[in-house]
Design a protein around this nucleic acid. Structure first.
Length: 177
DNA sequence: ACTGGGTAAACAG
DNA sequence: CTGTTTACCCAGT
């Protein structure tokens, strides 16, 4: 499913790991794009062009992304624009935000937590639809039996992030890399 | 280790 | 509405 790429303000997020991009809607941060994702018409307005609110949000986003990449805790997030998401997706993503740095949950645990035991698979689908990976930490959700699950920006990123947060990962698929 | 059925949700038609 | 697809789970071989 394509991520929303309609009318939005897109600003660059420079990091030591490459240039991410952040997309903003009226209500706040709408999506994060990882380095190298194609198909983006990147608009980098001069400072004066961006509304003041977006400038403030973007400052928070940049700080949060850089901190998250360093394995540190994320202190503050800009408001998140989840318009267009289903109720189920919002419940899943809200649950992800409660996972402390350095901990992981299984898809089934998240399902139970939001009151839909047995919806583990649907939780996986909601994670895949998460437009704000890294800050809405879907990389902290793994399969119950030691598997990795997936990651929209690529499993290599998931492994890097988890390793940085102190987890040792083993997954058969990694041998292929 | 492998298999099969169960499961909830989103989506196309 | 039905059929298809999912970043899953668990109890059986």
């Amino acid at each position: 499913m394509a991520r929303p790429c309609s009318i939005a303000l897109i600003l660059a997020v420079p990091t030591p790991e490459g240039i991410f991009h952040a997309s903003y809607g009226r209500a706040g941060l709408r999506a994060i794009y990882f380095p190298g994702e194609d198909g983006l018409a990147v608009v980098q307005p001069s400072g004066a062009d961006a509304p003041a609110a977006v400038e403030m949000w973007h400052d928070l986003t940049v700080a949060a992304v850089q901190s998250a990449l360093g394995g540190g805790g994320v202190k503050a997030l800009p408001p998140l624009d989840w318009s267009g998401a289903t109720g189920f997706q919002r419940r899943v993503w809200a649950a992800l935000l409660k996972i402390p740095r350095g901990e992981v949950r299984s898809y089934a645990q998240i399902a139970r937590q939001i009151g839909s035991p047995g919806a583990a698979r649907a939780v996986g689908a909601a994670c895949g639809a998460n437009p704000i990976p890294l800050l809405v930490p879907c990389h902290r959700v793994v399969a119950a039996r030691g598997g990795l699950g997936g990651f929209s920006a690529g499993l290599a990123w998931k492994v890097r992030l988890l390793t940085r947060e102190g987890h040792l990962i083993q997954d058969q698929r990694l041998d292929l890399w």
